[in-house]
């Protein structure tokens, strides 16, 4: 899973590799902050900087190349 390819069991974790859902940086920020179904929310656990760092990392790794980085301010506004 450290390869970002997700995993499959009774349910699954989606792959992050070349993931088109990451195209919208706002969606990625919202997902990390609020979670979605099996994905837990991290909004209370992570600072604005940390959320931005996670989102920017995922969107520029695992064969993703989205260059419109998010800032801590973007995260703050999305909370």
């Amino acid at each position: 899973m450290s390869d970002g390819k997700g995993a499959v069991g009774a349910g699954h974790y989606p792959s992050l590799v070349r993931n088109e859902a990451l195209k919208s940086n706002g969606y990625a920020v919202s997902l990390v902050l609020r979670g979605h179904k099996a994905m837990p929310p991290f909004g209370r656990m992570l600072s604005d900087d940390q959320v931005a760092a996670v989102v920017n990392y995922i969107r520029t790794h695992f064969d993703n190349d989205y260059t419109d980085a998010v800032t801590a301010q973007d995260v703050k506004d999305a909370r």
């Binding site: 009774a10 179904k37 099996a38």
Partner: peptide, 10 residues
Amino acid sequence: TIPLTILSQI
């Protein structure tokens, strides 16, 4: 009785 994490994907 499937956990909701999984049921939400079914």
